[in-house]
Amino acid sequence: MTRTRSIAILALVAVAYVAITTLYLLGARDVADEDAPPPPSGGVLVSLDLDGLRGETYSLETRVSIEPDAALLDSTGELTGAVTVEVRPAANTGTATFAQGTRAGSAPVTLYLDGDIRQWPFDRYEAAGLTVVATIDDGTGRTTVPVAVTVTDSMPSWVAGLVDDGTGPVTITAERTTETVAFAVVLCLVLVALPVLTLFVSVATLLGRKQFLPPIVTWFAVMLFAVLPIRNLFPGAPPLGSRVDYVVVLWVVFGLAVSLVLYVTAWWRQGP
């Protein structure tokens, strides 16, 4: 029976390894963004390149770039007027200006996010109700031009999308990739395994089924101090007080502490 259980455990570990590795490789292969649409006639295609998501500060770091229509460019491919793009609402100015007579570059814009990082690793975010307005100033006055919006996801471990029905404000959504969630779940299972093992040993010793061995006390201490390093490996670094701390980490620490108390009690009972 022991051999059968050992084989089953090894098989379970192998299956988990293959599953997570496969998810990671499939996710790494599927990193290409969809082809961007062409700029509207007489307008600009505004691209929001997502650089970073900070759930603890509810902010989304982006870089705004434009692809102007040929009507806004001269024969050398430079802008015939200064193009200004405004993204609202934004945490900073939300304005990017591309000077006349230059080739369009990019400018940073920070957007507000709605979400809850305490739901890690199943947290989901969105920047809703975004309006993007572009104007061109050729020296005679500022004119509003048509705008199309696209999103480029440059954030590792995240899947981002754009909700745009073409009739009004747009919404950017972001959630963790499947392989990132799987990695987080496995780390939580590793933490849960620690008190399960120590409780098994301490209860067996307390009941007299196993002999008390002083070096095992050190093993309990090592297990206890291993919790924080494993906790710091959580992808996305959820802040202290997240749901995972109350559901997993707190009870892991509690279980390890109880194991140590039970083992010391066994020492007291079995000692001379």
Rank of each mutant, 00 (worst) to 15 (best):
D30I: 02
A221M: 04
G81I: 00
Y125Q: 02
V217G: 00
L224H: 03
N92K: 12
Q270T: 10
G166D: 09
F212T: 01
T144F: 04
R118M: 12
P89H: 02
F254G: 03
G52N: 15
T177K: 11
R54P: 02
P195Q: 06
P39H: 07
G166L: 05
S202C: 01
F254V: 13
W251P: 11
E67F: 09
L53F: 12
V46Q: 09
D114C: 03
D123C: 06
E67D: 14
T93A: 14
L191T: 07
V85L: 09
I230T: 12
V133G: 01
G139Q: 09
V87E: 03
S6Y: 11
T218E: 00
V132E: 04
A14I: 13
P238C: 07
A204G: 11
A174D: 06
V133M: 08
A71L: 09
R63K: 14
P89S: 10
E179D: 15
L197Q: 11
T76P: 04
F225P: 00
S259R: 01
L250S: 15
A14V: 14
T97G: 02
A99T: 02
G105D: 08
F220M: 08
W251Q: 09
A11D: 11
R269V: 00
I216Y: 15
Q100T: 07
A70F: 08
G241V: 10
V151P: 05
S65R: 15
A71W: 03
R243W: 14
A182T: 07
L262Q: 04
P215L: 00
V264K: 00
W158K: 02
L130E: 09
G52H: 14
A226R: 02
A96W: 04
A14Q: 02
G161N: 10
T177I: 02
D30Y: 04
A19Q: 06
